[in-house]
């Protein structure tokens, strides 16, 4: 590693970490380091003090909330999410998405908090967390606040975090009855960055034939995960069939200007957003009907 000179501290408690972060403008939390260290290595950003929070027990647990949801510590790794029976029991898809991030080495180190706080539009977890209605629990020396995931991501590498503030945990509400989630991505290669992705959560009516309510989130069509409210409106009350979903998703991403790069034009990504949206919703429907609370076919 060819970093610039940087100081490193490993506080014993979250409180100590917050003290250091508050007292030094140049301090930054170090979680899994899977992005931050690369960023420092490439010298596109510089940090004076790395505050290593990765071993804080308080940030590393997964707990069941009273209402049956999950409270996931910010420093829970992708691998821990993947292998957690708690996560799989209530939010299968979250484990599945985490279990498909890059390779095992990265999954051993990368954390759910880091994945969100970086706010890299290619990251896997933000869109599914928005789709699941997760809430980000933030803490600073001056107190705590909760920010819905949908409001947390502010832009390319920008979040709602204030200086000196830590993401301590993420609360994921329980999946309503008759609901399921889906996740579909298009990537250049098996473990490559996604070109476009979509995450969806749907709740079906009692009989399981129509869509009662849905949340459809697109990623990589903009700098942050975006909900497609119009498509959601078209989905609500629609038949829970592939054809109906296809019709509802036909207008997805229209009017958006996804980035263009060597892997595909803006127009290509717009078209792919429709396809991924449909696939995610169809998966979510299947999951809602099945015993599982999330899809198995999510992957990247």
């Amino acid at each position: 590693m060819l970093l610039e000179q940087v100081e490193y501290v490993r506080p014993e408690t979250v409180g100590d970490a917050l003290e250091i972060l508050a007292s030094d403008d140049g301090a930054a939390p170090l979680a899994g380091g899977q992005s931050l260290v690369n960023v420092l290595k490439n010298r596109v950003a510089s940090v004076d003090v790395l505050v290593d929070i990765s071993r804080l027990a308080e940030l590393s647990s997964i707990a069941r909330t009273a209402d049956g949801g999950l409270s996931i510590g910010a420093c829970v790794t992708y691998d821990a999410l993947d292998r957690s029976p708690e996560v799989r029991a209530s939010h299968w898809i979250l484990g599945d998405v985490a279990g498909h991030i890059e390779d095992q080495q990265i999954r051993n180190k990368g954390t759910i908090g880091g994945n969100c706080c970086l706010s890299d539009p290619t990251n896997n977890l933000p869109p599914i967390l928005v789709a699941l209605g997760a809430v980000m629990e933030l803490r600073s020396r001056s107190g705590e606040r909760s920010v819905p995931a949908a409001d947390f991501f502010k832009g390319y590498f920008a979040t709602a975090l204030e200086p000196g503030e830590l993401l301590v945990s993420i609360t994921v509400p329980p999946m309503p009855e008759h609901s399921g989630a889906g996740y579909a991505s298009l990537a250049v290669g098996a473990d490559a960055k996604a070109l476009v992705r979509a995450a969806a959560r749907v709740t079906l009516d009692e009989g399981g034939t129509t869509i009662a309510e849905s949340c459809l989130v697109l990623a990589r069509v903009a700098h942050v995960p975006v909900r497609d409210a119009e498509a959601e409106a078209r989905l609500s009350g629609a038949d829970a069939t592939e054809e109906a979903v296809r019709a509802a998703c036909a207008g997805v991403a229209d009017g958006m200007q996804p980035i263009a790069d060597v892997h595909g034009s803006s127009e290509y990504r717009r078209q792919m957003a429709k396809v991924m949206a449909r696939r995610a919703v169809v998966q979510a429907i299947a999951a809602a009907r099945g015993s599982r609370n999330g899809s198995t076919a999510g992957g990247k």
Partner: peptide, 16 residues
């Protein structure tokens, strides 16, 4: 160069 690192240049792995 549009693909100066493995972020952009997807080197095929055994998965591909």
């Amino acid at each position: 160069l549009e693909e100066p690192s493995f972020y952009e240049y997807h080197v095929a792995t055994s998965l591909d």
